[in-house]
Design a protein around this nucleic acid. Sequence first.
DNA 1: GTGAATGTACGCGAATCGCGAACGAATGTA
DNA 2: TACATTCGTTCGCGATTCGCGTACATTCAC
Lengths: 110, 110
Amino acid sequence: MMISKRLSELRKKRQWSLQYIADQLNIAKSTYAGYESGYRQPSLEAVKELATLFGTTTDYLLGATDEEQPSIELTRPTVRLTVDGEAVTEDEIIQLIAFIRAKRDIENKK
Amino acid sequence: MMISKRLSELRKKRQWSLQYIADQLNIAKSTYAGYESGYRQPSLEAVKELATLFGTTTDYLLGATDEEQPSIELTRPTVRLTVDGEAVTEDEIIQLIAFIRAKRDIENKK
DNA sequence: GTGAATGTACGCGAATCGCGAACGAATGTA
DNA sequence: TACATTCGTTCGCGATTCGCGTACATTCAC
């Protein structure tokens, strides 16, 4: 079960106890322990709350993605980018990439 | 139930039948119908498959976000950007934002 | 030693699941 | 018009899974 693996990893990384998480979600320690062991599956609501608690996404918890923090590669634009709520155009992204590459080039020559 | 609302919206927008979705997920029509009516909750696995089928995210289906397509606001420093696999620094992002804003300013004055 | 905290496992009653079946309404076909 | 098909909705059923309390071994602090 992917979610049990992810929960276990995230919790240990933060050095949180089972009890702490159970308290945050208002569920029994044994209930949350079941999530990590794979003995139980959290409700959809619990999944949402866990994602918030861990500061990650439900997609990551469920294994729909492997990126704990959403991260985007500009040269392969799979998501919509916005600045001040307004979409960044494709042309602008191309310019941004050129800008970053040029900047790195200069840095590397030092 | 947020997910039932979202599923219903997405399916109708695509003009798909209950049966079609049920076939895609290999579940009974009544089972999927239960998801939309709120009478049943899909399993975590089903949520993942539904997100794939609809081309959206589990976060959207569960109501953890309101954006159907993942979209990233650059001015929020929660995102990790990469170019050619290498992380874009926070300073660089600030410069990018300034660049975009300046560009828009010029456009607007035309 | 003693107490508290941690992680693990189990049994129980209650809740929920997925399914097939049945239904009326709408649509298609001859 | 008659008839069949598709659609969305709802129900009961058996089986599964849930969340909880509880118990236990281990570890740590005092």
